[in-house]
Design a protein around this nucleic acid. Structure first.
Lengths: 138, 138
DNA sequence: GTGTTTGCAAAGTGTTTGCAATTTA
DNA sequence: TAAATTGCAAACACTTTGCAAACAC
């Protein structure tokens, strides 16, 4: 039983992942509507609402499989929850703790100057800017 | 029973915190040796080694009390652990996941250009750069 | 003395895992 | 059919909490 957007199937195949019902369904939710930032729980709830039968454990598994396959990127902004971002190119984020909303900042527009060399014996893996915001009391 | 470095006592008093044995002992560990980045578990282990009797729960409580009092700053770089930084001024970090080591990057040397305005209705709380590094295969 | 803080153990939260049953290719 | 994946429930790691006893001021 393999039915979903052909686009999702495409991406999974390209990433070398088998086309299973949960993967196709979740890929459909994730990749059909522009850039998204979701937690496992959010995606699970969405799946349930959309009448997709998946277990929460599978949502976690799939999120990690997608991340390893380069289809997602994990964003760490809260100690108690992981966010997954469908935008995998280097870029930055606004994060509002009050409502848990992450928002992309294009990586190309931002320049960072004055970074020292990484500690001896290490090399830079990624550079990420997190701009924490709060509701303005205006 | 209140014995510890007078410096620690000083800071606690200034922050409006009662001078309790656990607080004084942990403040001694935290603030006597320049800037530090610790997890609750690390600080607890250190306390145990130093023959300081504190429960892990109290270490958590104290870390949060110190954070609220402005003596520490929480740094979020891993989903499964919180780090606490004795350096509370705005600054940035190198982080090596392989060994869990955080290292300060002075905030003054770094300039970030091209950040867009924060989302409508919000204002910037903090801007933090996290440079993830890995052991170089040199 | 009064209100705060501690420590313990239990509860909580988000996440991972073991394994039999199912499904993909 | 062989190998991979799923779902469930149990296990996990880290953190928080409830509450009686201990302590600071």
């Amino acid at each position: 039983m393999l039915r979903s957007s052909p686009y999702a199937a495409e991406r999974l195949r390209a990433a070398g992942l088998r086309l299973t019902r949960p993967r196709l369904a979740l890929a459909g939710l994730l990749f059909s509507n522009g850039d998204r930032h979701v937690t496992a729980e959010q995606l699970f709830d969405e799946a349930v609402k959309t009448k997709i039968l998946v277990s929460l454990a599978t949502v976690y598994n799939v999120l990690h499989q997608f991340t390893e396959a380069g289809l997602l990127r994990e964003v760490i902004v809260e100690p108690e929850r992981s966010y997954f971002d469908t935008h995998v190119e280097p870029h930055h984020h606004f994060f509002c703790e009050a409502n848990g909303i992450l928002q992309d900042i294009s990586g190309e527009d931002v320049t960072i100057k004055g970074l020292p060399a990484p500690p001896p014996g290490t090399e830079i893996d990624s550079v990420e800017v997190i701009v924490r915001v709060r509701a303005s009391r205006a």
